[in-house]
Each structure stands twice: as structure tokens, then as C-alpha cells.
Design a protein around this nucleic acid. Structure first.
Length: 280
DNA sequence: CCAAGGCCTGAATG
DNA sequence: ACATTCAGGCCTT
């Protein structure tokens, strides 16, 4: 009998999905929207809001998913090496703003900007005798001045942040609704948000809207595909246009199947570790 | 449909 | 000490 697929919390948190996390002794603490989560090394969660949350997607049949994405040597190796890596189901608004901030940036910088945004616009709370700033509500961010948002070092993205928050407040985008719609429909809607292109949209869909076939293609993933999957995907250009992104995504889903997003996370983790890139 | 350049910041390199 | 390069994705032309 094969060992059931468990959770490796360290690996999961250090995989580029989340930014507002820190470790105190044996627990990871992380901001997730209006909630703060405390996670032990088995993945057991206690939350500030005291409500249960399937943050690690335990309802998935993960054993089957892992089997399904293990189509080739590369994924098989990364699945083995990073055993316990999970996709996390995040607060959608925080996820959206996080990945708008992420564009044209890097992980340490993203983390710093987001922490500043929380401290400046989020509510201060106490949990486990520690202080945290919650992520700001859409209302709060939609009313913030661009000048104030810029103080968090987000530069030209400040107006995207404000506009994105407005879109959410005005219910032009409804996360609950998007969770139920299919991948391409949901993507069409989310790409209308200022500052959201293909890559950011796929991150939001994968990490907070339950779209497991989305496969965010950033510079790293392109590099990875060129390096290990040249025969399969034949990437010809350095800059990926919208059309090419779409075609490439179709090929990817054909190769990895409906849970391609899981494969993306393993490959990303693997290559960033190879290059010893910083996580949090 | 595609190509090129601008937007911002901070770390790394010269 | 200072200047340049680089990383990074979206938007406009």
C-alpha cells in the first residue's frame, strides 16, 4: 500500500503561493483576508475567526491528482522530491491584490509591499498573544488615495490596486459566482480587472477560485518548459503574446490533464529551489 | 495579430 | 561612491 499523500506545511508555504506568512517556533501564522491562520506542522489549523476552513484542499482526492499529473520523468521526480506540497485555497481578494502587486516584481519585494499595505490599511488584531494586521477590505482599499498606496513601494501598480478594489466593491466581479463558473468564463471576467493579465489571472484562479486547470505562465515557467519540455511544447519566442499563451495553455492541459495547476506548482518549486531563490 | 517601449523598485554587479 | 543592469508582467501605441 502506498503512503497516503500528507501535507508538508513548510514546502507548501514556501512555494510562491502566499506572502503574508511567518513562522514562530513550531507554528506558521498567516494572514488570509479578514482571518489569521495558525498552522502546526501536520497542517492542523486554528483560526482567528474560529471557523473551519479547508485551506489545504483536503477535500480533493490528492492521491489521485498526484497520480494524474505524474505524466513524465520531470513531474514524477518533483512530486517525489517535494512530497507534501499542496495548493492552498486563499482569500480571493487578498490573492487578487497580491498578484497584481507581484507583476514585474520578486517575492521578497512583494512580501514587503503587502505587509505595508496591511499595516497601513488593515485592522490590527491580537491572536495567540501576537499582533497581526488583517488584509484590508475591498472598501478600505477602494477609498485609499493612490498617493497613500504608493507609500508601500508598489509604484505604478497603485492605481491598479485601487481600481481592482473598486471593481470588487461595485460587485462587477463576484468571487462567489466565479468559483462556480468554468475556467475560461471565469478567466475572461477576471482579465477585465486593471492590472490583471493572463498570468495574474491564472494565479488568482488557481490559488483562490478552485480552477485546477489554470497554469500560470511567468518567466520561470516558460524557462522550465523550454528546458524540460521543448519537444512537447515548442516555445519559439522570448515574449509570449496573448494568443501564444492561450495555445500553450491548451497544449499544457492536454499533456498534464485537468489538474495541470498542481503540476505547475511542483515544477515551479523544483526549479526555484534549483536556483536557490528566496521564498519568504 | 504582433512588436516595442514605458512603467517602478530594489538587489546585484561593475 | 556611483552608475548600470537585471528581474518581473501589464498596458499603450
Amino acid at each position: 500500500m502506498q503512503k497516503k499523500y500528507t501535507i508538508n506545511v513548510d514546502i507548501s508555504i514556501n512555494s510562491g503561493q502566499v506572502f503574508l506568512w511567518r513562522k514562530y517556533q513550531d507554528y506558521w501564522y498567516g494572514v488570509n483576508g479578514q482571518n489569521v491562520l495558525r498552522i502546526d506542522n501536520l497542517g492542523k489549523i486554528k483560526s482567528y475567526q474560529n471557523k473551519s476552513i479547508d485551506f489545504f484542499r483536503n477535500k480533493d482526492n490528492t492521491d489521485q491528482i498526484i497520480k494524474s499529473i505524474s505524466k513524465d520523468k520531470v513531474t514524477k521526480n518533483s512530486v517525489k522530491k517535494y512530497f507534501g506540497l499542496r495548493l492552498m485555497d486563499q482569500d480571493p481578494f487578498q490573492c487578487l491584490i497580491s498578484f497584481i502587486v507581484s507583476s514585474n516584481s520578486n517575492i521578497p519585494k512583494i512580501k514587503q509591499s503587502l505587509e505595508c499595505i496591511c499595516a497601513r490599511f488593515g485592522d490590527k488584531i491580537k491572536f495567540d498573544n501576537k499582533e497581526f494586521f488583517l488584509f484590508p477590505t475591498p472598501e478600505k482599499l477602494s477609498q485609499a488615495s493612490i498617493f497613500e498606496i504608493k507609500k508601500c513601494g508598489v509604484g505604478y501598480r497603485a492605481k491598479f490596486i485601487k481600481e481592482a478594489a473598486k471593481v470588487v466593491v461595485l460587485k462587477k466581479i463576484d468571487f462567489e459566482e466565479l468559483r462556480k463558473t468554468n475556467y475560461s468564463e471565469a478567466k475572461k471576467h477576471i482579465c477585465k480587472i486593471p492590472g490583471v493579465g493572463n498570468k495574474v489571472a491564472d494565479c488568482v484562479l488557481l490559488f483562490s477560485l478552485n480552477k485546477l486547470e489554470s497554469f500560470p505562465l511567468d518567466r520561470w515557467m516558460i524557462k522550465i518548459l523550454e528546458k524540460y519540455y521543448l519537444d512537447e511544447f515548442k516555445i519559439m519566442t522570448k515574449t509570449i503574446t496573448e494568443k501564444q499563451y492561450e495555445i500553450l495553455h491548451e497544449k499544457i492541459v492536454k499533456h498534464f490533464g485537468p489538474y495541470a495547476g498542481f503540476a505547475q506548482q511542483f515544477l515551479f518549486k523544483m526549479e526555484r529551489e534549483n536556483y536557490k531563490k528566496k521564498w519568504l
